[in-house]
Structures are given as structure tokens and as C-alpha cells.
Design a protein around this nucleic acid. Structure first.
Lengths: 216, 216
DNA sequence: GGGTCGATGTTAGAGTCGTCAACATGCCCA
DNA sequence: TGGGCATGTTGACGACTCTAACATCGACCC
């Protein structure tokens, strides 16, 4: 019997969930590099071979954690709908939620965006809410509509994702560019969204596209 | 003697460089996760303890690779100065160079932006060229100047960095958002740089503020 | 109720990895 | 000429991932 937690019955009962839960905390303690399946098993109180009854691989367990991460991220993004305001403001809230999610679950976030082929299914789920609201923002004129919504959403996503990863890797500290999560997102998106800033000079009235010329 | 390459003399002669070179190729083959110091030593034709005469740690070797990566990235960014054009165009070129560097050295790029405290010294080196050209772009009116240059540069960096990491992790494939490196950068920066229409990107309207409505 | 069978545990072990201590080699220089 | 120091090797330890063979036990069938 391993040195971890003792239990009365031979079978654990809900080992799979216990492993996933324990993995989350172990992952935040040790990072995705130092994460060890043996140590996880020890902590949960089972032998080091037991996890293999539930996951074919160490990587399979981490992949499942990543999948759950995508669900959590999507939930966090969708939750910004509650205080329903303008599309532009909701995009800001989404950006902040994205950075917060990354800061709160750094290791899971890292695993989510590692090169593994299976994520190509789960990722669109988390991405969809942003595409939706970008479409709305284009209709209200908060975002240029001479570009397909997917392209605009992709750019916003890249910006926010870049802020998140750079913040996680302490990317801004040596440069005097540290800032609060809200400021990071606000100042970045202000450059992208042509929205209510006081210096709101150029409403791209109607170059080629008709759109919001008088609709406002 | 290990099974790798045979050599005549007892001493290798230039083991340190051989290790760094071999590490780069092994890293691209196996990824930063599957990278093994033992396998590296085997390939270079040296015992598994030999690397410790030159690097205190496995991590120390990788950190050195990251430092060299920062130098290479900075060089790649500075090289965009040669075909000297407008600041806005140079920012575009820098973005493309950034994505290319990441695509050509995926594993090293990954190591460069992992949470290690020592990178906080090397990173500003690679970042500086962008800050410089952003300042120029603000003077020519290609970028808004009511925001400190560092903030604008930080935003552009985040956008480009996000594009790079998402491209590396195949972030766009499930979404029908794949695109060429040039298009990724161009379409993203077009939303940030208030430079003219997508069409006339060769001859950006020149100095002065690009008048919003009439500059077309 | 008794028997069996599959899911879920355990133990033991192979093979790899990172790292260290002790020893070997040979170039450089007094 | 010979000693010392940088740079190799050998051998070993502990930890890791993963597999094979065996143990336990609840569910289901008669």
C-alpha cells in the first residue's frame, strides 16, 4: 500500500474523479513539467499502476484536464453576457475573463494550448462566444465590418491570448509594462475597437461599405 | 563508451558547442517535453555525465538555448530595417519575422516564453526594436499618439505573439481560420494601425494624420 | 443463496531519465 | 619533466512511465 492516504475498502470508489481533482492541484503546485503521475497516485492513496485503469496514458489524463479547461473557459466567457451591455463592452469583459481564467489556472491553460492534435475539436467551443459577439459589434458599428467577422475575432483572440500568455510568463516585468488585468485588456482593445473613447475621432463612416453611416 | 558517434581522442574538444547544436535539432524532433539529456549525450558521442561539465543542469542548457533564441529573434527583427520603408510597413515586416521565427524554431520559441525568472533580462533586448519603430510610427501618424509608445508596443507585441503561439499550437485549424503568415499579420495589424485601406499598403498616405473620412 | 465474471485494485519489474561521486586522461605550463 | 586542472568515463541511486500477472469484490444469473 502506498504511503499516501489510507482507505478502508480495496476499491477506491471514485478514483477517476479523485485523480482529476488531485491532478489540478498538483499541477498548480508543480507546473506541467514537474507533474508526476506517481506522486498523484501517492497523494490519492492508490498504487502507481492504478491510474492506468482509467487513463491509457499520463498524457490522456492531462488531455482530459485540458478538455475540462475548454468547458470552463467557455463558461467564463459566456458568463459575461449577464450584465448585458453593448457588444463592445462585452468584448472587453470577455478579454478580462480570458486573462483571469489564465491567471487562475495557469498550468491547465498551458496544457490547453500545447501542440496536441486532439484539441482541435474542443477549442472551437470556447472560441464561439467571441465570434458571436464580434458579429454583433460589427452590426452596431463598434467594429469595422469590411472584414469578415472570423478575421476580426481571430485578431481579438490573438491579442487577448498574447496578453494572457505574456502575463503568465512574466513577459512584461523587465520592461516596465506591468499593469492590471483590466488595464492590459482595456488599453489593447481600445486600439482595436473604435469605440466610445473620448478621442473617438474616426468613425469609419462609409468608405466602401455602407453600413452604419446614418444608423447611429 | 556510449553507442553514439565514435571519436578518436579522449576529450571531445568542443563539447559545449556540440551539445548546444545537437540540442537544437533534438529539440525540434522531440519537442521540449520529450527532450532528453541522455539521448543528446548519446548522439554527440559522449557519456551521459559529460554534459554536466558544461551545464549545471538540464535546465541550464535549455536556458542557454533560450538566451541564444532571444539574440536570434532580435536579429530577425532588426533585419527588417534593411529595406527601409515607412514605420507602419516595418511593423508589418517585424510581425511577419516574429511569426517566421516562431515557426522555424518552435521548441526554442516555446522555451523562451516559459516561466523562468532569468528571462526577464534577455527579453527586453528582443523587444526594444519594436518599441523604437512604434515611436517612429506615432510621429508619422501611423499610430495614435495619445497613448504612450510602450503601451502601443505592448499591444502590438501581444497581438503578434498571440498569433505566433496560436499558429504553433494549431489554434486556427478547427475554425476555418488558417491563413498564411503574411495574411495573419497583415489583417491583424490593419485593425491596429490606422493606416489606409487594405489596398494601397505600399504607399501609405504619407505624413500627417490619415484623415479619417476623406483620406480615401 | 452460490457461482462466476468483469471492473478495478495491487505487486513486481523493465527500461529510461537526471544527477552525482569517484576515477581516468591528457593538455598546458612551471 | 612532471604536476595540476579541465574534461572525460564508469557505476550507481532514486524517481519516473508503463506493463504483466495476480487479488478483490460487487453485480448478475441460475
Amino acid at each position: 500500500m502506498p504511503t499516501g492516504v489510507k482507505r478502508s475498502s480495496y476499491h477506491h470508489g471514485s478514483l477517476r474523479e479523485a485523480l482529476l481533482d488531485g491532478a489540478r492541484t498538483l499541477l498548480t503546485e508543480r507546473g506541467s513539467q514537474g507533474f508526476s503521475l506517481n506522486e498523484l497516485a501517492r497523494r490519492v492513496g492508490v498504487s502507481s499502476a492504478a491510474p492506468y485503469r482509467h487513463f491509457v496514458d499520463r498524457d490522456a489524463l492531462l488531455a482530459e484536464l485540458a478538455d475540462q479547461g475548454y468547458l470552463g473557459l467557455r463558461a467564463a466567457l459566456e458568463e459575461t453576457e449577464r450584465p448585458a451591455t453593448t457588444p463592445a463592452d462585452r468584448i472587453r469583459r470577455m478579454g478580462v475573463a480570458y486573462l483571469r481564467f489564465a491567471a487562475d489556472n495557469p498550468a491547465v491553460f498551458g496544457i490547453m494550448f500545447q501542440h496536441r492534435p486532439d484539441h482541435e475539436k474542443a477549442r472551437p467551443l470556447a472560441f464561439q462566444p467571441l465570434v458571436d459577439v464580434v458579429g454583433q459589434a460589427q452590426q452596431t458599428g463598434d467594429l469595422p465590418d469590411h472584414v469578415p467577422p472570423g478575421v476580426v475575432a481571430r485578431t481579438i483572440w490573438a491579442t487577448v491570448h498574447g496578453l494572457a500568455t505574456l502575463q503568465l510568463s512574466r513577459g512584461f516585468v523587465g520592461l516596465g509594462l506591468e499593469d492590471s488585468t483590466e488595464n492590459l485588456v482595456d488599453q489593447a482593445l481600445t486600439l482595436l475597437l473604435r469605440s466610445p473613447r473620448p478621442a473617438d475621432r474616426d468613425r469609419p463612416g462609409g468608405p466602401g461599405r455602407p453600413g452604419p453611416a446614418g444608423s447611429r
